[in-house]
Amino acid sequence: MPETPHSREWYTRLAHDLGGYGHAWTRVLSGPDPELTFDLTLAGLLTPQTWVLEAGCGHGPDAARFGPQVRQWTAYDFVPALLEQARRNAPQVSLVLWDGKGKRPTALHGSFDLIVSRRGPTSVILRLPELAAPGARFLYVGPRLDVPQVPRRLDSVGWTITSEWRVSVLAHAPTREDWQSRCDSMGEEASREDWAVRATAAGMPYREERYVVLAQPAGMN
Rank of each mutant, 00 (worst) to 15 (best):
M1Y: 13
M1H: 14
P2F: 05
T4E: 15
H6S: 10
H6N: 07
S7T: 07
S7K: 04
R8C: 11
E9G: 03
W10P: 12
L14I: 12
L18S: 07
G20I: 06
G20T: 00
H23G: 11
W25F: 11
R27K: 15
V28H: 07
V28E: 10
V28D: 11
S30W: 05
P32H: 09
D33C: 02
P34K: 05
L36M: 08
L40Y: 13
L40N: 11
L40Q: 14
L42P: 00
A43P: 05
A43G: 06
G44R: 00
G44N: 03
T50Y: 03
W51E: 14
G56Y: 05
H59D: 13
H59F: 11
P61M: 08
F66R: 00
G67A: 01
V70E: 03
W73L: 01
W73Q: 03
T74P: 04
A75L: 01
A75D: 10
F78P: 14
F78R: 15
F78K: 07
A81T: 10
L83I: 04
R88H: 11
R88Y: 10
P91H: 11
V93H: 03
L95C: 07
V96N: 07
L97C: 04
L97S: 09
D99Q: 08
K101D: 15
K103M: 12
K103G: 14
P105Y: 08
T106H: 08
A107M: 13
H109D: 14
G110N: 00
G110S: 02
F112L: 03
I115G: 06
R118W: 11
G120V: 01
P121Q: 09
T122Q: 13
I125L: 06
E130V: 08
E130T: 10
E130M: 03
A133Y: 00
A133T: 01
L139K: 02
L139N: 04
V141G: 03
G142D: 09
G142R: 05
R144K: 11
L145T: 11
V150C: 00
V150Y: 02
R152Y: 14
D155P: 10
S156I: 07
V157S: 00
W159G: 00
S163I: 09
E164Q: 13
W165G: 06
L170S: 09
A171G: 04
H172W: 06
R176Q: 08
E177H: 05
Q180C: 13
Q180I: 15
R182N: 07
C183S: 14
S185K: 10
A190E: 06
R192V: 14
E193K: 14
D194K: 15
A196Q: 15
R198Q: 15
R198Y: 06
A199T: 00
A199I: 05
A199S: 12
R207T: 08
E209V: 08
R210S: 10
Y211A: 10
L214C: 03
L214A: 07
A218K: 11
G219W: 12
N221Q: 13
